[in-house]
Every structure is written in C-alpha cells, then in structure tokens.
Amino acid sequence: MTARRIIPCLDVKDGRVVKGVRFEGHVDMGDAAELAARYRDQGADELVFYDITASPEGRTLDYGWVKNIARLLDIPFSVAGGIRSVEQAGRCLDHGADKVSVNSPALERPELISELADRFGAQCVVVGVDSKRAGDDWFVHQYTGDPTASRGAGRRTLDWIIEAQELGAGEIVLNCMDEDGVRRGYDIAQLTAARARLTIPLVASGGAGEAAHFRDAFQQAGVSGALAASVFHTGSLAIPDLKAFLIQSGVEVRP
C-alpha cells in the first residue's frame, strides 16, 4: 500500500512562515528553513511552501529560497506562489522542488495546467483549489493570499477539479476555506464529493485541529494526504504523536 501523507504547509511571506485565521490576519510563526528542518526530523511525509503574497502581487517566488530548502530536505516538497509559465515552473524544479502547485494562475488560464503536464509530466503538477460553500454547493475562490484581492472565481469546485484533472493535473489540494484555520476538522462532505469524482490523488486542506480530524479525512473521505499548518506550527499537535494515533486507529502511515 501507500501510506497516507501528513503534509505541513508553510505559508511564506518574506522568508517567514505566517498563518492567518480564515486567510486573514497573518501571525509570524518562524523562519521557513528552520521549520522545514524541524518537520523533516519529526517525520513529515512532504512539505508545501506557499509564497502567499506572490500571486496577489503579480510576481513569482524566490528561486534562491527554493534551492535553500531543497538542500535541507530529504523528503519531497512542492512550491506554490504566482507560477504562471512553463519557464517559471521549470526554474522551481531546476532549483530542487519536486512539484509545483498552481492555483490562481490556472484559473486565469487553464491551459497552463496542460502546458506544465506536457513538459514536466502530470506527477509534477499540483492544482490547488480554494473552495467555499454557498448554499448547497461549493465554489472556487482566487487570490486568497490577500484579503483585499480575494474573490470568487465563478466556477463550481466539483467542475473545476475535474477540468484540472482532464488538463493533466497529477494531484488536487482542496482547501476548504470555511474551515481554514478554525480547527473544527476537515470538510468531510466536500472532500468525499471530490474524491468520488477524481482518479488522481486528493489532498485535504483546511480545518485540522486535532489528531481525530486527520483520521476522519483518511477514513471517511479517503484522501491520500492531509495538509495542515497552524496545528503543527503552534506545537499543539506533534507529528510523531499524530502518526502514533493514526497507526492505532488503523490508518497506514509511514512511522
């Protein structure tokens, strides 16, 4: 089998890890490289780095910083933040990232997903989706790194993830914004609906507050990985304890 992945997510702003509640009010959580090394040593299965201000500011991320992270890590990591072209994605991969994650730029120009998949292979291409409930359905949001720029993208979430998969995405990270940073648990209903429609791996994001939330995402929604930020950054849940709990609960993880 393949172990379910525990994925700390580092939202980075000027080399510092920050975390907001429901995407607003960012609080400094420490140096990005220091946190990355700590999570590596604790048994994180993968890391995600989001340069959260890149997309709203219309720029891409800092390649030197990607390289520093790549030198440190012996586990996979993906990077995200304003990647708009094959050339920019190629530079991230050349500097040692394993995957690139695209979000707002893929909504602006969906062909970006196929261009990346054709050039680098689907396995390198993660599509991040920020999703919010409206009535009985879920809708995609974009430019969510900046509260003043954040807005609806005019697409149904469940349509967009299928389109992204057909265009060549290798993995979807579904960030359920209603739950982000509030630690009440992952949005199981939304993740289950997404899982049922996808053939590629799905990663849950948004809402993790305790170990049982991870277990539920794996066992009830069937996701391949679960991403979380503040619950790890604040030290309220340590990865070794989380993994011990999951093993005890019958979830296969890498010890």
């Binding site: 089998m1 396995q123 996808l198 590629i200 069937g222 391949s224 890498r254």
Partner: peptide
C-alpha cells in the same frame, strides 16, 4: 479502482 494514479507517496 480505489487507488489513485499517479502512484504518489511513501510505499514499503
């Protein structure tokens, strides 16, 4: 059918 493709992650 219940295993996503690509095979992405840690296996023994």
């Amino acid at each position: 059918a219940d295993r996503p493709v690509p095979h992405m992650g840690w296996s023994q």
